Simulated scan of single mutants.
Amino acid sequence: MVRSTHAFATLLALAVPATSFAAAPPQSFKGEYTVSYLGLSIARATFSSRYEGDTYAINGTVSAAGLGRLFDDTKGTISSKGTISDKRMTPQVFRADYTSGKKASMVDIRFSNGAVTSTQVIPAPKKRDPKNWVPIGDGDLKSVLDPMAATVIHADSLDKVCGRTVKFYDGEMRADLTLTYASKGSISVPGYKGDTVTCKMGFEPVAGYRKGRKALNFLKNKSRMLVTFAPVGQSGVYAPIRATVGTQIGPLTISAGRFEAVN
């Protein structure tokens, strides 16, 4: 998350409508999202996901839009593949390819049994100053989720969606995302009309980051982050349909313009 394009891709990936249907017929879903700042659109993303047996595959496109193109003309693709067992997503491969202007970037993460086995980032990160860099330790990359799989919540009801911690890894940073109950509500967007639950999200960097970085300190100590989840079909799985993230420059809003099964 040290480069703006890396942070952009990670932010959009956090809004992926991923679901799982182990031992069920193949099912596909589609989500369309807009990221806005002060009411002005700055980015768009479209994701499609398919679930067959105990496997899942998610593919998406992201791009700067509107005002965002004036500052960072980012566009690219994101994909995630893995398996589903015991109501848990177990990623195998995550990849993000994107460009910002003429600069191309890539993040490729491979997993085995829930643990990261390799990470490739292009361009390669610059040399870190050991005095202020928190390195990733041997145990930090076990039982972690990539930015797409991290959005999935398996729960028996809306009441049980919040109240959990997600171990998140984006190819450089390991962080814990904590979800605590905030409120219930309802929403209507193309493809879905019904009840929702909103969780307050806390951010705790664990490793793979520079000490004293103002943006991270703000997210950890001052940012107000809310994520609203909606059920996808009758699967018992809940996915983000709206989110607000407080930043140093003002609140960002991620909202679904479409949230539907496409079988």
Rank of each mutant, 00 (worst) to 15 (best):
2 V>Y: 09
3 R>F: 05
4 S>D: 04
6 H>Y: 08
8 F>D: 05
12 L>E: 03
17 P>I: 07
23 A>Y: 04
24 A>R: 13
26 P>W: 02
27 Q>E: 15
33 Y>S: 08
34 T>G: 01
37 Y>E: 04
44 R>L: 10
49 S>A: 15
51 Y>E: 10
64 A>V: 02
65 A>I: 01
68 G>D: 00
69 R>A: 12
69 R>G: 13
70 L>E: 06
70 L>S: 05
71 F>I: 08
75 K>H: 14
79 S>I: 05
82 G>A: 09
85 S>L: 14
89 M>C: 07
93 V>A: 05
98 Y>W: 09
101 G>H: 11
108 D>I: 06
115 A>E: 12
117 T>N: 14
117 T>S: 13
121 V>E: 00
124 A>Q: 13
131 K>I: 03
134 V>A: 03
142 K>V: 07
146 D>R: 03
146 D>P: 04
147 P>K: 01
151 T>H: 09
151 T>N: 10
152 V>N: 11
153 I>M: 15
155 A>C: 10
156 D>E: 12
156 D>G: 07
166 V>A: 06
168 F>Y: 14
170 D>F: 07
170 D>S: 09
172 E>I: 06
177 L>H: 00
186 S>I: 04
189 V>R: 08
200 K>Q: 13
205 P>A: 12
209 Y>W: 13
213 R>L: 13
215 A>R: 06
216 L>A: 04
220 K>E: 14
222 K>F: 07
223 S>D: 05
224 R>Q: 13
230 A>Q: 05
234 Q>F: 08
238 Y>K: 11
240 P>R: 03
243 A>Y: 01
245 V>D: 02
247 T>K: 01
253 T>E: 15
253 T>G: 08
256 A>N: 09
262 V>S: 12
263 N>R: 15
